[in-house]
Design a protein around this nucleic acid. Structure first.
Lengths: 154, 154
DNA sequence: AGTTTAGTTCTCAAAATTAGGAACCAACAG
DNA sequence: CTGTTGGTTCCTAATTTTGAGAACTAAACT
């Protein structure tokens, strides 16, 4: 049975709250926190349930949500019926791209907005287009930025 | 009295929902949408209230929230007691930096997490540190990226 | 002083989110 | 075919969020 230190528990709560602020439900946020912090990075349904003191339904729903959000995975071992859930941490590059994608989508909406707007407010329209364009630029440049980062670290 | 087209209303709803997904409350999200779309980019309290069909309390609370989030401003004209609310759109660069800041803050938590973690999971710890480091890198590089963007646009 | 206007605050009800518990299902074990 | 385990689903209650309405404040106008 898994036991957490005070510090670990505090970290889980902090991470949980951070995730909540990005729109995630509380239990899901804490599961993410737990998987960040836990010495074993692969936990079973019941380990998660037990250590966080939450119900089966909450656990099930949150795990499914996290899988939908592309944050979670599970692996199995033959002769063991349980799933071992883990963060898709090794794929964090995809995660970051995913976040930027949604922003870029918004950029398209901004362009639609400008297309609808009066032409009487040229500076305002320019600001909107600039923002939209920068977001797209950011989206395009992100892969390069990742490569640069790879290169510059020792 | 301000009148919106169907298309404008639809855009406001779309923008509103997008904002909601980033954790903003519904009315605040729609106000942002309205100010993006409205031909007049500076609206009074009552214009906002009326065109969105919301109560004074909801309007007041949302406007204050948006000012706290650094998204809104207002200007006044002498001899007119009303405030003219507007998006701080011309400052979108700051906005973008602000968003990245909060991510960077999370990066510090990740480093704390790794400091607490067992050393028995070196790859996992490496992934965590990589992510944390990349987020900081992104934070540092963003200003440069903005400059590049300024330079490359015609 | 009395009234109108711009906006705030308080109280409360409606609606949405969250999560517990129990019943359920499917796979495997004996 | 019966029992156990891992996980899902359904129903419901508690909590939180949201926003309306009315009372209120403060400034400006008369």
């Amino acid at each position: 049975m898994i036991k957490l230190t005070e510090k670990q528990q505090a970290l889980i709560e902090r991470i949980g709250i951070f995730q909540e602020k990005t729109g995630m439900q509380p239990v899901a946020g804490r599961i993410v926190g737990l998987l960040y912090v836990s010495d074993k990075p692969e936990l079973t349904f019941d380990e998660i349930r037990e250590v966080l003191g939450i119900s089966k339904s909450a656990t099930s729903n949150a795990l499914n949500l996290l899988q939908h959000l592309n944050r979670l995975d599970y692996i199995t071992y033959s002769g063991d019926r349980r799933r071992y859930f883990r963060l898709k941490l090794d794929r964090w590059r995809e995660l970051v791209m995913q976040e930027i994608d949604s922003v870029t989508e918004f950029s398209a909406t901004l362009q639609e907005v400008v297309a609808e707007r009066t032409k009487e407010t040229p500076e305002y329209n320019r600001d909107l287009l600039d923002l939209a364009d920068f977001l797209k630029y950011l989206h395009r440049e992100l892969p390069k930025l990742m490569q640069q980062w790879e290169a510059q670290r020792k």
